[in-house]
C-alpha cells in the first residue's frame, strides 16, 4: 500500500477483508454444524481439514472463532467511521496479532500435520494476514 494511504482508505480495506473473512467463516461454521462436507475440488482435501481434530478447539469450531474475529473487525471499522477516534486503532493489533499467530499455526497444521489443503482456510488466513498488516499501519497513524 502506498505510504500516503489515508486512514479512511485503510479502514475501507479492513472492512473488505473482514467481510471476506466473515463470509468464509460463516460458511465453514454452517458446514460444521450441519454435518456437511465443504464442497471443493477433490484434490484440495478440505473435507479432511474440516473433519480433522484440529478443526475444533474443545467444543468450539475454529470457524466460529473466525466469525467472532471478523465480526469484531467489522464493528471496529464501523466504530471508527462513526466516531472517528483513532484511539480504536491502538487496540486493534492486540487482537489481530494473536489472530495472525493462530492463523499461521493453523496453516502449519494444514500443511505438515494433516497434509491437505483447504481453500476456505487459506482464504481466511490471507484475510487475517491483511487485516493484521492494516491494523499495524493504522496503529502507527494513531
Amino acid at each position: 500500500m502506498p505510504s500516503n494511504t489515508s486512514p479512511f482508505a485503510l479502514v475501507l480495506f479492513l472492512l473488505i477483508f473482514a467481510f471476506i473473512g466473515f463470509a468464509d467463516s460463516v460458511y465453514m461454521t454452517a458446514v460444521h454444524y450441519m454435518g456437511e462436507l465443504p464442497v471443493c475440488t477433490v484434490i484440495e482435501g478440505c473435507d479432511v481439514v474440516a473433519m480433522s481434530p484440529y478443526s475444533t478447539l474443545g467444543p468450539i469450531p475454529v470457524a466460529l472463532l473466525g466469525v467472532l474475529f471478523y465480526a469484531l473487525m467489522l464493528i471496529s471499522s464501523i466504530l471508527w467511521l462513526d466516531i472517528r477516534n483513532s484511539a480504536i486503532f491502538g487496540f486493534l493489533p492486540l487482537i489481530t496479532i494473536p489472530a495472525f499467530g493462530f492463523s499461521v499455526w493453523l496453516v502449519y497444521i494444514m500443511f505438515f500435520e494433516i497434509e491437505a489443503l483447504c481453500i476456505y482456510c487459506l482464504v481466511s488466513a490471507a484475510s487475517t494476514t491483511f487485516i493484521m498488516l492494516i491494523s499495524i499501519r493504522l496503529k502507527r497513524m494513531a
Binding site: A23, V26, Y27, M34, V39
Partner: peptide, 21 residues
C-alpha cells in the same frame, strides 16, 4: 453493517445447506 452481516450470513448458510448430503 447489520444488514450486510445478516445478508452475508444468510447467503453463506443457504449455500452450506444446499450442498448435497
Amino acid at each position: 453493517l447489520v444488514v450486510a452481516m445478516v445478508i452475508i450470513g444468510t447467503i453463506m448458510i443457504q449455500i452450506a445447506d444446499r450442498e448435497e448430503p
